[in-house]
Design a protein around this nucleic acid. Structure first.
Lengths: 206, 206
DNA sequence: CCATTTGCCTAAATGGTTTAGGCAAACGGG
DNA sequence: CCCGTTTGCCTAAACCATTTAGGCAAATGG
């Protein structure tokens, strides 16, 4: 039962005094998010995160409850980052400008951080979702729609249309669904933003 | 080394002559699809499928190459079923009718077969995707758009808009994203189909 | 300077995946 | 009808990720 001693000896021979890795839920979440961007969100494992800190797997369990807990934390981080980015994008803009900037914020984030973007689609239980940045996303969309003067319940319909359209397009693009058609995805994106702007303006007048 | 004998004895005592389970890639795929609808696509494991046939896990490996292979087969099955359903829905319809029927086919399939619908978003490698029913989905969308007389490249833009909008809406709805707003999802869906129809008609004229 | 807390450890159980090798049932030609 | 081959499912065992339990030592603070 002198395994600890043997370990310490080796450790001290090889790396000097045993250094603490400085783990915390935040640091692990950040590392998990980076891992997700590199290998995909589904491929995030506590084992790989531990490897990156050169630490034993069990050590992570003092900071996160489970593998699922780690994934939820990554999702919450991504939702917050994405809401911050969208919020900054629409600041000082209105109408078509705001819509285009908002759309670009989402698409840009998904391109730069594919794993984090995948994480935003993790199914959260209702309480967690309500306490997350998810409601901010809906609020930001409503802020854009203020420029179009839609009455309820049409404003809610429009929130759902925009959320679905942007999210769905990004997902189909990421899945490689556009690879076999020689039409520039950027051109489609611009056309779609344009068309949705026209749609909303038409709906406002009735 | 007489484990086989021991096993056979038990088997014969308990269940008579050793019956073959009648496994095949098709049967396993079907069972996997049903499992997906019950517990979610990510929760599909070869272990659970084996349990359902009362068969040892290793036995499945004569029929499917790996756990991933099973998942790909489920995805291909779902893509085919969904394309069949969409195809039937738009037969004999045009314009707004076709669009609404197409949309309803997707949403209905996702509601009735949530796990299979999740499977349709599995990332397939390009060759597999090209040989799947995925191209049929794009063709079906183009069939609907014939009624709107859009020139290229706008027709391609519209294919991407419709694919993204329907898919994104279904995903957001399934994720519970609409739970905290007291607006009927069906009403939003109808409004969205209506709006997209108007959008396409407007784009056709210019 | 000692007591407590904190951080990471070893050890071991659980469970899904996968390969290797084997027996026996089914099948088809002589 | 019998025997060789194929097919179907088996046992056994390795691998890897997850998770819990329990322990030592560094850091912390009175």
């Amino acid at each position: 039962m002198d395994n600890h001693r043997a370990y310490d000896t080796i450790k001290e021979q090889e790396a000097g005094p045993v250094a603490r890795a400085g783990l915390s839920a935040e640091v692990l979440t950040k590392a998990g998010a980076e891992l997700a961007d590199e290998v995909g969100f589904e491929q995030v494992t506590v084992t790989e995160v531990a490897r990156r800190f050169d630490v034993k797997v069990a050590s992570l369990y003092s900071h996160v409850k489970s593998s699922q807990d780690l994934k939820v934390r990554i999702a919450l981080l991504a939702l917050t980052e994405l809401a911050d980015r969208a919020s900054e994008a629409i600041a000082g803009r209105a109408g078509r400008d705001a819509l285009a900037a908002f759309a670009e914020a989402y698409r840009g984030y998904a391109r730069e951080h594919p794993g984090r973007y995948q994480a935003t689609r993790l199914r959260l239980d209702p309480e967690t979702a309500a306490a997350s940045a998810a409601p901010r996303h809906a609020q930001l969309t409503r802020a854009i729609l203020r420029g179009y003067h839609l009455p309820e319940p049409e404003q809610t319909h429009a929130v759902r249309l925009l959320g679905g359209a942007f999210h769905g397009y990004i997902e189909l693009e990421a899945a490689g669904g556009f690879a076999h058609t020689p039409v520039d995805p950027q051109a489609s994106w611009d056309w779609i933003v344009d068309s949705l702007d026209a749609l909303l303006r038409a709906r406002a007048e009735h």
